[in-house]
């Protein structure tokens, strides 16, 4: 597992950790059952607060991405077998996509450019998964 934190990134550090762990699961670098470092180990290695790592792990646990039991290390949970309900997709993905579309608008990115960028990223990820 490879994690880094960027102080200059406007996204809070705990969310940076959450997204990196999620991404590594998507890429297959982390598999269901793989253990994660303890909160203390990760906090010491990254020189960040224990609570920040704890918050990241709690968030991942609440989303069903990892399992945490008292006295045991956190492990990657089984991947979701049933796709999320329409309501869930709407509440999570649509909201975020709306934010991104708004951001793109303010950056002067056209709809076509935005759509092209999404297609390009999906293609890159597809290639990565096939590899």
């Amino acid at each position: 597992m490879f994690i880094f934190v960027d102080d200059k990134n406007p996204r809070p550090i705990y969310l940076q950790i959450v997204m990196q762990i999620k991404e590594q699961i998507r890429k297959g670098d982390l598999k269901p059952g793989d253990p994660l470092p303890s909160v203390r180990e990760l906090a010491e290695s990254l020189q960040i607060n224990l609570h920040t790592v704890h918050r990241a792990y709690q968030k991942l646990r609440d989303q069903g991405i990892i399992n945490m039991r008292l006295g045991q290390c956190a492990v990657v949970a089984k991947l979701r077998e049933i796709p999320a309900s329409h309501e869930e997709v709407e509440s999570i993905l649509e909201n975020r996509l709306n934010e991104l579309i708004t951001e793109a608008f303010h950056l002067g990115v056209s709809k076509e450019e935005f759509s092209h960028l999404v297609d390009k990223l999906l293609e890159v990820q597809d290639k990565g998964e096939r590899r």
Partner: peptide, 15 residues
């Protein structure tokens, strides 16, 4: 990440 001198950690275990 190294270029930007960002704190990072690589972690793995055998248990």
């Amino acid at each position: 990440r190294r270029e930007l001198d960002l704190p990072m950690v690589y972690w793995e275990s055998q248990n």
